Simulated scan of single mutants.
Amino acid sequence: MLLTELLGIRFPLIQAPMAGVQDGTLAIAVANAGGLGSLPGAMLDETGLRAELIKISAATASSYNVNFFCHQSLPANTQQDVQWRQALAPYYQELGLAADAITGSASRTPFGAAQAEILAEFAPPVVSFHFGLPAERLMDRVKAQGSRILASATTVAEARWLEARGVDAIIAQGLEAGGHRGHFLSEDLSLQQGTFSLLPQIVEAVSLPVIAAGGIADAKGIRAAMTLGASGVQLGTAFLCCHEATTSALHRSALRSDAGSHTALTRLFSGRPARGIVNRLMKELGPLSELAPHFPYASSALAPLRAASELLGFDDFSPLWAGQNRTGCHEMAAADLVYQLSSAFRD
């Protein structure tokens, strides 16, 4: 079955779910333009998730995707937290922040029964998962409501694991991709490959449709992925500067600057490797520093620093998620971007 038929879309083009820089507005625009718009659910509480799904359901009759994280939720580690606060103390002092300004808790919640209950109300056409899959009983609930299931793989082994557990299509996430690595069988980053190396290997290894993600920014990149066997593509960075995205002015400026081409994998902002534009914190502490607590607790202590720095017009402590190829990121309507990209399928 073609990916367009499987997912109920006009073009085999998926807008990557990007927590923190979008809401349902971007997903609606992409869906109405013929692609698969995606809503990131990892940072939404139950009230927020339901509100976004109500908004999307009212604004489009087209297919859309809701994405969730499936990490194992570990308790906070006091020793790690103290170590992290000590590492950040000089920055607190520099910005005149009190040491006890740290407030809040981890903001990324794994998919669970509460989210499954809300999804049952709306039965979204597509549900996607990052960091593996939820428990089998939760997977069964999502399947029972008729939703197609997508999941990310960063290695051939992960792709085979996902196929064995009944997903409908696999997203082959290359090392170039922005945001969090979708790895879940191993934390060894050396196992991960670039998109155009990983993609044909996964296509060969599984019998499911494979969606290429990472480093694809235009129609030429899409054609290259399709030539290597992809059934469709997923783009994130290209949508960051769309009018409908909530990407901050500082983030947009960084994407347009010369610095925007310098990205790295970093643990500093969440505790789990994710690709973003290199900024002051990454340079001074080292992007993969072990000082940061495990996922998702690193963000709590950074929140006051980020807020204070952004008020001064600096992105020193902000997660500037972006892939290695930001050339397709322009200030434009999402529908216009989908139309440009879809030339890969229309020509």
Rank of each mutant, 00 (worst) to 15 (best):
L6F: 11
F11E: 08
P12C: 04
L13H: 03
Q15L: 06
P17R: 04
P17L: 03
G20P: 10
V21K: 07
Q22G: 04
G24E: 01
N32Y: 01
G37F: 08
G37K: 13
A42V: 15
K55M: 14
I56V: 10
S57W: 13
A58S: 15
C70Y: 06
H71F: 15
T78Q: 11
Q79E: 14
Q80D: 13
D81Y: 00
D81R: 08
W84N: 04
W84E: 05
A87S: 11
A89L: 14
E94Q: 15
G96L: 05
A99D: 15
T103N: 07
S105R: 14
S107A: 14
T109Q: 11
T109I: 15
P110Q: 07
Q115G: 00
I118C: 05
L119D: 03
A123W: 06
P124F: 07
H130W: 05
F131P: 00
G132L: 06
G132R: 09
L133Q: 03
L133S: 04
L138R: 12
M139E: 02
M139Q: 13
M139V: 12
D140T: 15
D140I: 05
R141K: 14
A144S: 13
A144K: 14
R148K: 15
L150V: 04
D168S: 12
A177E: 00
A177T: 12
H180A: 11
F184R: 05
L191D: 10
Q193I: 08
E204G: 05
L208I: 03
L208K: 12
P209W: 02
A213F: 03
A217R: 03
D218I: 02
K220G: 08
R223Y: 00
R223I: 00
A224Q: 12
A224V: 10
A225E: 02
G229Q: 10
S231M: 02
G232D: 02
Q234P: 09
Q234G: 06
L235C: 01
G236R: 01
T237M: 02
C241Q: 11
C241Y: 06
E244Y: 03
E244H: 02
T247Q: 08
A249E: 14
H251D: 00
L255V: 11
A259K: 02
G260R: 07
S261P: 00
L265N: 08
R272T: 13
R275P: 10
V278N: 09
L285C: 07
L285I: 12
G286W: 07
A292H: 04
H294S: 10
H294E: 11
F295I: 08
S299H: 06
L302P: 09
R306W: 02
L311F: 01
D316R: 07
W321G: 08
Q324K: 10
G328H: 11
G328K: 09
V338I: 14
Q340Y: 14
R346S: 15
